[in-house]
Amino acid sequence: TTTKEDLQRLLQLLLRISTVVEEAEGRRIENRAMVRQISIMREQMFRGYYLLDAFRC
């Protein structure tokens, strides 16, 4: 795949993950494992957005 295609795919994945993270943040989750999983997802999401911005620049 080309860099452009990879960036497009990255954006699609980030949109999907951010939807789930946002949905999770709007719910009262007390399960520690789930909270941890959301935290990992959020971290990976920010990493992805950082990379996306870096490559776009």
Binding site: L10, I17, A24, Q44, F55
Partner: peptide, 30 residues
Amino acid sequence: SKELKQAVLVLENMVADMEDFVIFLMSYPR
């Protein structure tokens, strides 16, 4: 670049594992 492909792969795997998580998530109240 290699870094970009690696990031895509990591997120692809994360999204693939997300299905069950989303179903479970929906059972929680807002």
